[in-house]
Nucleic acid binder design. Sequence first.
RNA 1: GGGCGCGUAGCUCAGUCGGUUAGAGCGCACCCCUGAUAAGGGUGAGGUCAUUGGUUCGAAUCCAAUCGCGCCCA
Length: 929
Amino acid sequence: MAQNYRETLNLPKDDQTIPMRANLPEQEPRWQAFWHEIDLYQRLLEKPAPNGDFILHDGPPYSNGNIHMGHALNKVLKDVIVRSYAMRGYRTPYVPGWDNHGMPIENAVSKQFLQQGKTPTKVELRQACREYAHHFVKVQREQFERLGLVGDWDKPYLTMDYAFEAGIVRIFGELVRRGYIYRDLRPVLWCPVCQTALAEAEVEYEPKVSDAIYVAFPVVRDPNHLLGEKAHILIWTTTPWTIPANLALVVHPYFEYARVKAGEREFVLVKTLVEPTMETLGLNDYAVVGTVKGEQLMGVVARHPIFDRESPVLLADYVLAEEGTGVVHTAPGHGAEDFYTGKRYGLPILCPVNERGVFTEEAGEFANLPITPEGNKAVIRRLSDKGALLHYAPYHHNYPHCWRCDSPLLFRTTVQWFMSIDHNRHREKALEAIRQVRWLPPEGETRITAMVANRPDWTLSRQRAWGVGIPAFYCEDCGEVLLDPDLIDHIADIIGREGSDVWFDQPADYFLTEGVRCRQCASNRFRKETDVLDVWFDSGSTHRLVLETRPELRWPADLYFEGSDQHRGWFNSSLMIAIGTKDQAPYRMVITHGFVLDGEGRKMSKSEGNVVDPNEVVQKMGADVLRLWVCSCEYFEDVRLSDEILKYVADAYRQIRNTLRFIVGNLADFDPHRDALPFEQLPEIDRWMLARLQEYLAYAHRTYEGFEYHRLYHETRRFCNVELSAFYLDVLKDRLYAEAPDSPKRRSAQTVLYELATALTRILAPILVHTMEEVWQRLPKASTDGQADMPSVHLTEMPQPHTEWHDKALLERWEQILAVREQVNRAVETAKNEKRIPNPQSALVRLAVGGALYELLNRYPTPPTPENLLARVFGVSQAELVPAESEELLIEVLPAPGAKCARCWLVLPDVGTNAEYPDLCERCAEIIG
RNA sequence: GGGCGCGUAGCUCAGUCGGUUAGAGCGCACCCCUGAUAAGGGUGAGGUCAUUGGUUCGAAUCCAAUCGCGCCCA
């Protein structure tokens, strides 16, 4: 019987709204195809942009491997920025790019060759690297586009493009012209078998047995008479072959050093290691005759145990007193710390070992011996002959080895190329430029300021194959360097035409212009530099080579947006090149985000098994869920991600989706042009809803301006769940379902629903790009503000708050009504629990109150009909208001008198009064009658 | 070891200038509805604000130390 009336209601129909189940993994690619079809990116650039350009310059990810969650976080946030600016009246060209050159790809490709037993030429290796890079550009591009990113994906920038490579060479030339480029010595880890320098990442620490020796350096000068007769400084080393390069002995200024008398000689070593050392040396008969603070030893000079030269005692705080003697034998040519100590004290950099690990003439009697094992043996023998060797034993430890050929490595001091950071007031200019930039979060400014203030000169050269060759020559006759800015431009032209492989493929003459001569010896015979540029030079050049070369872009960028590690990386290298060539920062604002950690706040790693893969998330849950997670995070700090967190975000997604599903479902027969009511004709609760919507919109705009999407996420969830689902939409159901389709009561409700839908979809479009498009396409097309006719929600403008709809007095009034509602809910819950009523629908709520609250509530008549607003707001069938003395609100919950209307389900006294429809209330009887 | 940060309910986040009993949504528990239904509604329980010490009439908030976590270096 009751079922008969179902058909007379205006219930939303499933096929007139979006499906409850989103099925994003399948649906999202369809929307992406649609955007390609309408060329969304181009249309975004062509639409009116009253606020001008907004240039977000994309930091290039490295074209190696699949994307990980850090990429996803970064690119999704960039996409939200680009889209939200586009929807707020800016023109937002976004050109994604990739960083292609560099060690990781070269190593991966080298290993492939190695496995095939092939030894490629440099050019063959480079070509394979290029193919490898292209492959991963394609892979990552697909994975990025699957996240729903909008941008010029058909024409990204690649640092290995010929034009880009030529541009890098030209920028290097500009720095040469401005006097920034020089050559100097630098210690590097070197593989004598591969004859190449290794980066820290290529070093593998493996067990090795070394020759550990104790050596006594006789003191020859002791200006302050701290030490006794025949004093010797005692050192310990596991690399005897570095003894010929010894130039100093280094002690810790704060350590206590002991003078140990043993036989004729006195040994100086750190006090805490006297006992074990003496035991090792087999000197049982000894006595500590005094102590000296390390810093006091400054000025003491020893003699080299083999050669006729001095070895002064110097100070450094990296000295340890855990093993050895607390005195570091220092060979500036063979250690990083040794090198910098040597530099600080003005020692020469002696490196008597060639690239094959063989002693040079500088090693005197050891010349032509390989450093191991022959060199070691010869040095030990010679020390022994001289009586300087106190002990020798094999020593097991972890030692750096070559990742490729597994040979033990050595430190060599080599000549490298540098960019000076202090030339031409460069550092001061950079620090000044940093102050002009807006850093978000603001701590970023502290971080990069410290970095730039303390950074050493930039080592630009790498002994590698997969990079842009440094365009320098050496005279074949006298070795003089040829570095000429005009010649460099000429080389850049060639590279622009033929790619940078040509540098490795063609002889020097190919690049030299007519009449080039060595300025030293006038020779015309040259060889090319074989080093390549650091890849940070490539990416540090993108602002010049992308922003300045693309007509749709401009220099400087409005925004750089990357992980906080880029303070040292890209922000830094870009700034160095920008200051060095243009005396200005390449960005106006820099925003950084944190790292993606697991649910416990620990770093994700394969070995821990706590990695969440963005591609998998997209496949299982959809890009919109991933994007919603991104926007739920306070990303200025590190963010957390786990399956549990994703589950909660998926719940949030469903709640937002269902809210919109309900709204859209109730707009199926609504034509805004024809049916919308003017604001003034809307009932109060509808005007309240619109006023609240304006507050939501104003808040949303603030969050977009502050890049604080997580605040929008939270507010949206609260708005949808609390204000819409739990309240307004629930209250609206009677009007939407039971009133006549074209009645003003229903049309006014729909007018508000339409406003809500068109506002929410546009506000959320930058985040839930696919879902909001889906909703948009389902919305009535006729427009009230010129926006609804757009073929895609992404081409619309974000709704601005209607200030005239923001009625403050009304909002305050309803704040009180909602507070009363909460009290009523509690009373109804109690009545329900006490079995006085089965459910709210069968209740009558009687309010008794005096004073201001009575006056306020009395504005709303409480007839026993569907018109009773308070009853609808409270979610009960009937409500009454009676005046009382007390200002304290009394709430009575009673069974509602009357019968339940078979159509609208309200319990009303007038059910049965209509003879024709005895099971209906008057309102319902009239409507279907 | 150094530089820059972070730590508020199970989760994600608010918390103004130091000022009542530290808030929200979700989740959870119990209940209602069955005309948003692999939906919707109601009520409720959850916190030593990482720890310790200090400044203050008063500290989640300011200071110091410790612990834990992250990024960048050594």
